[in-house]
Amino acid sequence: MRFHTRKWVKPGDLNANETLFGGRVLAWIDEEAALYSIIQLENKRIVTKYMSEINFMSTAVKGDIVEIGIEVVKFGKSSLTLNCEVRNKMTRETIVTVDNIIMVNLGEDGKPKPHGKTKIEFVKDRLAGED
């Protein structure tokens, strides 16, 4: 799994228990899944269709650094299925896992559109192919 993003837990990210608010973590996961999918599918019109069971395992407190990891599970015709792990860099514990996040590629009409991708591509490889 590749960890692309780090977040610093700030006072506005906390719940009444003074620990990281689960809703904030889910928003971070959704944004990271969208960004990852936009880059992979080379289309900014990406939406979240589905998130499977969300398993909260530990937490973070103010000042902790968390990182978000995304991994491709499957390329569909117009979708991309990902899994995600969020971990606390300070305690080295997993905060939450999501086994399946389905992101859908849309056309200009707002309807699902085939993306034609079958494997993970890295931007550096795309740029090398332009030479």
Rank of each mutant, 00 (worst) to 15 (best):
K49D: 00
M51K: 11
D64W: 06
I70H: 07
V73D: 04
G63E: 07
L80I: 09
E53G: 01
G76L: 07
K77R: 10
R45Y: 08
V47M: 11
S78F: 06
S78A: 11
S78D: 08
I54L: 04
K62D: 11
T81L: 03
K74F: 00
S52I: 04
S52H: 10
N83A: 10
V73R: 00
A60G: 08
V66Y: 15
I46N: 03
I65Y: 03
I70Y: 03
E53K: 13
I46Y: 00
R45D: 11
A60H: 15
T48M: 12
M57E: 03
V66L: 12
F56N: 08
R45T: 11
M51E: 12
N83P: 14
C84A: 09
L80H: 01
I65E: 15
C84N: 03
V73L: 04
C84H: 06
K77Y: 06
D64H: 14
Y50G: 05
N83T: 10
E67T: 15
G69K: 10
V73W: 02
S52F: 07
V61L: 11
M51F: 06
M57L: 09
E67D: 14
G76T: 01
V66W: 08
K77C: 00
C84Y: 08
G69R: 13
T59R: 09
N83I: 13
A60E: 13
I65L: 10
E71V: 13
M51L: 04
G63N: 12
E71G: 15
V61S: 09
S58Q: 02
I65G: 07
C84T: 03
V61F: 00
T59I: 05
E53D: 12
G69V: 12
T48S: 15
V66K: 04
K74L: 05
I68V: 14
T48H: 13
L80G: 11
K62G: 14
L82N: 08
G63R: 04
D64C: 13
T48I: 12
F56G: 05
S79R: 01
